[in-house]
Structure formats: structure tokens, C-alpha cells
Design a protein around this nucleic acid. Structure first.
Lengths: 164, 164
DNA sequence: TGGAACTGTTTACCTGCTTAACAGTTGATG
DNA sequence: CATCAACTGTTAAGCAGGTAAACAGTTCCA
């Protein structure tokens, strides 16, 4: 594939600089490649849920609330790996869409347990299916064993943090 | 699967909620795992270069300028996968640190070719070694074949974007 | 000789966080 | 039982890393 951009590139840079065959130190750094790959997946996620779809952090929060009803915001933040303060507006959004409710815990008046609504559960499962389908399509070039290997390695990296 | 007993335990004792054994739909989504893993690697990168270290985007830009001296900002932005406008402040920063210079191309007066300084090249190689060493340490739990598999899969995902 | 397309740049904006501070609540310890 | 550390959710301010739109200057092409 020879794009107009490449022709321009060749002109601007006399070396035969082909974007698709670029070799630099960056290509060997896991961090760089992970960032680039994540950008692609993130974009795909947004396209999957469309114009007014919820964001990845919001989706993740909803997922955990559906999985662990009555979870507290503190615990949810810990699971997501973000600060409690960062979670507030995410939960606000989910509450405004009636996907969940904050209910005061009688046993501990500090805590507001997060409980998904029926609508929230239904919407979540629909979104999950959509996201899953889009991801499968995007990653059609990977075999299912490659996909599971990838996930295993990513989880291994996340686990490596605690040990440092 | 999460048992009712576990939920109860979680409620009774929030600290019992083990982040590393969480099981939910999210664990099967490549996007979610990639984001979480990237956060870990990103954090490691910042720690590697210390308090006043350059950011990952800035490092990537410098890397490509060192590899492809006289590259234009447009081509660099394309390689990095970001907009031209987003690159301006990154290059400003590198120029202020005397890691590179903008020089007018005589053949095309629109273009400002980016040329690394001797100091820039030197600093880059030092940073690369540091980043590489930190990453190797972080990923010590992965065999070298696992690491190369991971990179191959990440590149494959990046390549999948064009086809969509 | 236009006009389309590319150059770098500024401006305004957005998302997804962080840190610091706060009041209310709880539980443990003296 | 008094108090104090620690936890709850929340607000406010700020930062990182972008995007989109508009712009003037430049180049290419028909």
C-alpha cells in the first residue's frame, strides 16, 4: 500500500522512510507497544457503544457493581485501581442513567452501597455482548489461544506491580 | 464464580476483598487487561526516569528523532499516531532542553526538520538503557520468549486497526 | 493562475485521572 | 468513656495527554 503520505514522507525525508516498516528502539519496548495497541482497542470500544455510549472506566465500574452488588465505592475504587475521588463522577453518571443506586448501609452510615437497578443489569449485559463482539472482530487475526495467552501475560504484568 | 459467602465476607470485612483474585467479566476483556497492565508499565517508566524525567510521549518523540534525523513534525506525528497539534508542545519541551533543534528545510519552507543535538543523542541513549533495564526488571517474571510473544501480539493488534 | 493540499501553530476543549482537604462516622485504646 | 486514628464519600484544583477547528504560509498540479 503506497499512500500519499508516504510519497510526501519520501520527499520530506530523503531516506526511504516507510511508516509501516519502521524499525526503532521503540518497537522493542513493551510499554510503547502496549500503549499503541491500547489506543486501537480503546477506539474500537468507543465505536462499539456508539455516540452516547459509556466510557471504558464507567463500563468497568458498572460491570463490577453488577457482579458485586452492594459493593462500596471504596472497594470498587480499589478494584479498579483508581482513587475514591475519581470514582465519584463515574458513579454520578451511572446513577443519573438509573443503572444503579446509592443506598445507605444501615450497619455503617459512612458507606453508600452501590446496587444495580434491573435496567442497569439489562443494559450492562447488552453492552457486554456488544463490546465482546467488537473486540472479537477486531482481534480476528489472533487465534483463540493467542488471545488467552495475551490475557494471561497482561494479568501477569499487573501482578508484577505488587512485588516491586 | 463468586459465592454468596464471599459477598458476605466482603461486606463484613472489606479488607478481605482480594484485588488479585477478582473474577468478573472484565478479566476476559482484552481491553480492560491491557489498560490495567499499561498503567503498571507507565508507572514503572516514570519511576525509571525519576522526578524530572521526560514523559513517555516525549521519550518516544526523541527516540524517533534520534533514529530519523531531519524528520518533519508531520511525519513524526504520523509515526506516533497523534495529531500534529499535539506534537508541538512535546517538541517545544525537547527544544528547551537542547535535545533537538528545529531547522528550516531549504527545499520546502513549510517544513521544520527536527535534528537531534549531540547532547540529545547522548541523553537519549542513557535514558533508553535506564528504561530498558527497569522494564526488564518489572517483567522478570516473563521469559524472554513470553516477552517477544507479547510484543508480537501487541504489534498485530496495532496492525488490525488499518483493516477495520 | 487558481485552487487544493500540506506545513506548523494557536486556541479552546475534553477525558481521566491525581492530590489535598473536609466533615461525618466508626472502632480501638488508653 | 473520652479521644484519637482511620475510614467513608465528597469537593476543588490541577495535571497529562491528547483532539478538533481554524489560521497563515507554502507548494504542487491541472
Amino acid at each position: 500500500m503506497t499512500t500519499r503520505a508516504q510519497l510526501k514522507a519520501n520527499k520530506a525525508n530523503p531516506d526511504n522512510l516507510d511508516i509501516n516498516t519502521t524499525v526503532s528502539d521503540l518497537e522493542n519496548l513493551v510499554g510503547y507497544n502496549m500503549k499503541r495497541a491500547y489506543v486501537v482497542i480503546h477506539k474500537d470500544f468507543r465505536e462499539a457503544l456508539g455516540e452516547n455510549g459509556i466510557s471504558p472506566p464507567t463500563f468497568s465500574a458498572l460491570s463490577l457493581v453488577v457482579t458485586y452488588p452492594q459493593i462500596s465505592q471504596s472497594n470498587l475504587a480499589r478494584m479498579l485501581g483508581i482513587e475514591r475521588s475519581g470514582l465519584v463522577s463515574i458513579i454520578d453518571g451511572l446513577e443519573q442513567q438509573d443503572y444503579l443506586a446509592r443506598v445507605h448501609s444501615p450497619s455503617d452510615r459512612r458507606v453508600q452501597a452501590l446496587v444495580p437497578t434491573a435496567e442497569g443489569v439489562k443494559a450492562y449485559h447488552a453492552m457486554l455482548a456488544t463490546v465482546q463482539a467488537h473486540e472479537d472482530k477486531l482481534l480476528a487475526g489472533l487465534s483463540s489461544s493467542e488471545k488467552s495467552t495475551l490475557v494471561k501475560l497482561l494479568i501477569k504484568i499487573r501482578a508484577a506491580e505488587s512485588q516491586a
